[in-house]
Amino acid sequence: MDWYLKVMKNYFNIDGRARRTEYWMYFLVYIGIIILAGILDAIIGLGLVGLLVALGHLIPSITVGVRRLHDIGRSGWFLLIGLIPFIGWIILLYWAVKEGDPQDNAYGSNPKAA
């Protein structure tokens, strides 16, 4: 939960780097919240809760994705590759599971060393 809260506290922050742990733990908690919102929507009969949860997590999901790309030495603009169906998703998935740069890069120091 600490990783999720760290991302939510850095709501608009695209500076620095995000470790794999930070990225994947955020999305694990986010998926759980989306599932709960879907169940709540099914009970209530509206699609409003899921929509509000998705909108509330849109910016943090983008910013943690940008910081994750920074960790492997890529610009955050590479996140737009995800707009290419299938191929773009596979490339982004590969970059998301790839080990970060062990040394400092143009986007900051190694978060594992800190």
Rank of each mutant, 00 (worst) to 15 (best):
M1G: 06
D2K: 12
W3E: 12
Y4F: 07
Y4Q: 01
Y4P: 03
L5C: 07
M8T: 07
F12K: 05
N13P: 09
I14C: 13
I14T: 14
G16P: 10
E22C: 03
E22K: 13
W24L: 10
W24M: 10
Y26L: 01
Y30M: 08
I31M: 12
I33F: 11
I34L: 12
I34C: 02
A37K: 08
A37P: 07
I39P: 14
I39M: 12
I39C: 04
L40G: 13
D41F: 12
D41H: 11
A42Q: 06
A42E: 14
L46D: 15
V49S: 00
G50E: 01
I59H: 06
I62V: 11
T63N: 06
V64C: 04
G65W: 03
V66E: 11
R68V: 06
H70S: 02
H70Q: 04
D71V: 08
G73N: 03
G73I: 04
S75L: 03
W77N: 11
W77S: 13
F78N: 15
L79I: 13
L80H: 02
I81R: 02
I81V: 10
G82F: 02
G82Q: 09
L83D: 08
L83M: 14
P85Q: 12
F86D: 12
F86T: 15
F86E: 15
W89K: 08
W89I: 14
Y94R: 11
W95I: 05
A96G: 03
V97I: 11
K98Q: 13
G100E: 10
D101C: 00
D101H: 11
P102S: 13
P102L: 00
Q103K: 15
D104T: 15
N105L: 05
N105V: 00
N105Y: 10
A106P: 10
Y107F: 14
G108N: 08
N110Q: 11
N110E: 08
P111F: 01
K112Q: 04
A113T: 15
A113P: 05
A113K: 14
